[in-house]
Amino acid sequence: MGKYIIKRLAMSILIIFLVSVFAFSLMHILPGDPIRIALGESVSEETIAEYRAKYHLDKPIIQQYGLWVEGILHGDFGKSLLYGEDVTTLIKTKLPVTMAIGIPVVLISAVFGILFGVVTAVKRGTWIDQVITSIANIGIGVPQFWIAILCIFLFGLKLHVLPIQGYTAPSEDFGKYVYMAFLPVLCLSFGFIATITRQTRSNMLEVINQDYVRTARANGISEGSVIFRHALKNALIPVITIIGLQVRIIVGGSVVIERIFNIPGIGALLIRAITERDYFIIQACVLVISLVTVGCNFIVDLLYGVVDPRVRKSWR
């Protein structure tokens, strides 16, 4: 088992290194001088040179990369080219916002997606199955922004029951946080629940016809245990992959949803940075998001082993 984990870990570190190189190269590959964009046209050459020196942009590229990575290892992501804000502080304030939306989305999607998947598989062909499966198909096909607009229109503008934008931190006022975060969480969860439902349903249908499920029934095992212990455990293996891919939004946030609901999260920050070419912020966001994505994939790999003993065995 140790060997497998070390191998996966080494792979993860390599990926993060490559991502950091790529993110860093952006500033130098893309046309246009970031300093000139930041300062405007009417600045003297001396000011530009001064600015360059301040951000170490006058040094060789390799050294620049080295300085950047060194800073990150000390918890310093650099400063915003435009506003001089400390990027680390920016990330520290925006990340909790995105996570406060993302974590409930992932939890809700996993719980309801698996639940609906099991129900539709067990009740296959009945009206319950047809209703949930139809809604799930809509959820997969319809883009998030459209659902968001519909929700804003219905709950916000027609029924006046939920706010159409804004955000309150859970630490500040939990009740208000739930109230404010309800719609964005709902809109983000809808598609994820739909994806997980469909995946769980098709896996369950496959597993339910397996011989070992018949054996469990033939041995008088209760239907609850047959479904949730014998069948679901086998059906979950591919579902874990799907959920693992979605965990990314805990940090990445949804750019679209944060924009629509005016939530000051990482997604909104990233959009701002890209439009303004604030490279250090882009680099930091890309790095943080990929760190979590790679981390999640690593955890998913370990979870396979927890669920499937055959995988665990192959690690040895």
Binding site: Q210, D211, Y212, R214, T215, A216, A218, N219, R229, H230, K233, N234, V307, D308, P309, R310
Partner: peptide, 15 residues
């Protein structure tokens, strides 16, 4: 009690 034809698939692989 029932005993089935396929011993390879009649027991749950993850339990």
């Amino acid at each position: 009690s029932m005993i089935f034809q396929e011993p390879m698939t009649s027991l749950n692989p993850v339990i």
